[in-house]
Amino acid sequence: MKNFRVLQKEQSHWAYATPAIAAIFYPFLLKAYHAALSFSVTVAVTSFLLSLVIPVHGFLVAWDLGKKSAPTSADVFLKQISWLTVASPAIFVADGVVTYMLGSSLSDTTLWLIFWILAAAAGWLAHMKSSRPVLLSRVANMPTYSPLLRVAHGISALLIIVLFLGMHLTNHLAGIFSEQQHRHLMDLFRVIYRGHIVEPAIIVLFLFQTVSGIALVQKLSARPADFFRSLQIASGAYLIFFVLGHMNSVFIYARKFAGIKTDWDFATGAPTGLIHDAWNIRLVPHYYLGVFLVLSHLTLAARLIAISHGARPERANVLAVIGIVSSAVVALVIMLGMCGVHVST
């Protein structure tokens, strides 16, 4: 019986290291997708869907760890690694762009392997040491974070929606009808969000969202979390890397390094497109999760605001689920348009 408990404990060590272990295979599943396109659509689609399982698995492990009422420092560390796994599609895109810009002798895949092998080893060792619980009671008794910071984070998010995000997502939704519809709306909206005053303000707002988001994620990582809170933190972690990577791709790589327009062709990887190019395929999960998680993040923030203003938690939870499902549908419609699927009108 004692040996069985030891074996069970050792299995749990590996279980909590699996998000980082799974992330190691992320680039290779995308490579398998591209290689299989020439001989089997079924194999290609299966490889692509398996790549999406990796960030989902990271979320599930983080959610499971969040159920612990008295997490150890090792649990917190493993949750943070799991959130990195959730963000793996955004990190892999940034890895590729930065590696190319720096002219690194190491490929983006090699750097990826080095990072995630080390992360997996660190996660496993951290959980091995957690047999002596170091309870974070002092942190657990502290406020979630400064109310002022949370309010500022919310206000800056609202400003981003009004000044940029609402128009940007509407623009991309138009892509399901045609490229021309997308370009037409893009030209209209860019008059607003690329204005001499507005664009720098949007950049500052995004940077503030990132910095404040890091602070909030760090503080919340030491606290128990249900499904909704876990998804809110996981989506915030993803958006930190998505926003920083996207800003680098647009403002530094495209405008300064390559000198190219950030239009429909840039977003869809023209002329080869997103789904037929070995490099561009990484943009599909990157974009899809970016849209899905930003809308889910806003939905979950609205849920907390509603509850704090007296809404019944059961009703708020139902509406949050509807919002999350709707976010997934909106993200799918946008990605279908970007991948060349258009609805005739």
Rank of each mutant, 00 (worst) to 15 (best):
K2Y: 09
N3P: 07
V6Q: 14
Q8Y: 13
Q11T: 13
S12I: 14
A15E: 05
P19A: 03
I24V: 15
P27V: 08
K31C: 08
H34F: 09
A36K: 01
A36E: 02
A36D: 03
A44L: 03
S47W: 03
F48R: 05
F48V: 06
S51E: 01
F59D: 01
L60N: 09
L65M: 07
K67T: 11
K67H: 08
K68N: 05
P71N: 09
D75R: 04
D75F: 00
L84N: 05
L84K: 03
T85L: 09
A87D: 01
A94Q: 04
L113C: 12
H127E: 14
M128V: 15
M128T: 13
K129E: 12
R138E: 10
V139L: 15
P143A: 03
Y145S: 15
L159R: 06
V162Y: 13
L165T: 09
L169Y: 01
A174K: 02
Q181P: 09
H182G: 02
R183G: 05
L185R: 06
D187H: 13
D187P: 05
L188N: 13
L188W: 15
E199D: 06
L207F: 14
Q209G: 02
V217R: 03
S221Q: 07
P224T: 01
R229D: 11
Q232C: 08
I233K: 00
I240M: 11
V250C: 05
A254N: 05
K261S: 14
P271N: 04
D277H: 10
W279Q: 14
W279K: 13
N280E: 12
L293F: 15
H297A: 05
L298R: 02
R303V: 04
R315C: 03
V318W: 13
V341P: 00
H342L: 12
T345E: 09
